[in-house]
Design a protein around this nucleic acid. Structure first.
Ligand code: SF4
Ligand code: SF4
Lengths: 133, 133
DNA sequence: TATATTATAGATAAATAAAGTCTTTGATTA
DNA sequence: TAATCAAAGACTTTATTTATCTATAATATA
């Protein structure tokens, strides 16, 4: 079980937008170069972020992506859910009713992680950023 | 990102051993039937549990698997780590030093989940088990 | 000792998921 | 109109997970 690389790309992209982006949109080209990932692949990730309402896009010349919310209102969990989806990490195919003891505990455990991520906002990292990161 | 089915099998196997197993070992055949999984596949999972010190095995007639610790001393996390390994869920290949802000937060978040799983013991579930589960 | 029983290990195959590419379309600006 | 940029779909490649098959080793008991 691993977080996908797509999630890594998404987090870095968001962090960049939060930390450095001015008002004008940033193109996928520029975002991709910073991360050594192909623009076409990153664009699919960005489209997910758009659909999740985290960023907005503009086509055409001078287009690109920009944040749609204030950095105080964007959590790690928002970004992760946009990429990984919101399904439980532990989903037993045989659904032995809601009383399933194992699943209950696994979901609670996951909830602990999510709570941390829900409360960790982009704004908290933006200030601490150094050049190389 | 999903927990593997192997982890599911491992949790069910351990729960069964905790709840029903007498002193004599249980064969992989029997364990596999309950879960509709092939004995050979389950046996590799069990071997991991053996190597993690959670169960012990005995070859030969009347052999099989039995718990190696008291149920109060077996945590969800023990079992999950035995199967999934202990590496971080978020591992950026480019290791930008230990000061990496993103990784730091992701590891902390994961730590919250692990803490819950570390404190959740098999003994807590054993009593609540119903027939069908 | 011989035989049946059971776990361990390794190679391999099949299935699934993730990562990445290519190409077309559509929107926007200058 | 021409250049620029995002969105979408089909597709390929790679990696991981799941599962099977076979051979070997250990043990009990008849
Ligand atoms: S007990 Fe829960 S996890 Fe196990 S098979 Fe039933 S529903 Fe699935
Ligand atoms: S900032 Fe952290 S997560 Fe990002 S590339 Fe550097 S080490 Fe990896």
């Amino acid at each position: 079980m691993k977080y996908s690389k797509a999630t890594n790309y998404a987090l870095h992209t968001m962090l960049f937008l939060v930390a450095y982006a001015p008002d004008k949109p940033v193109g996928v080209q520029q975002l991709a170069e910073r991360q050594n990932v192909s623009p076409t692949y990153l664009s699919k990730i960005l489209t997910k972020l758009v659909k999740a309402g985290l960023v907005e896009s503009a086509s055409g010349a001078n287009g690109g992506y920009r944040l749609r919310r204030r950095k105080e209102e964007i959590s790690f969990l928002d970004i992760i859910h946009a990429i990984e989806g919101t399904a439980s990490l532990f989903d037993c195919t045989l659904n032995h009713s809601s009383e399933c003891l194992i699943q209950q505990e696994m979901v609670k455990a996951e909830g602990q992680m999510e709570e941390y991520l829900r409360n960790k906002m982009m704004s908290e990292l933006a200030g601490k950023l150094t050049e190389s990161h």
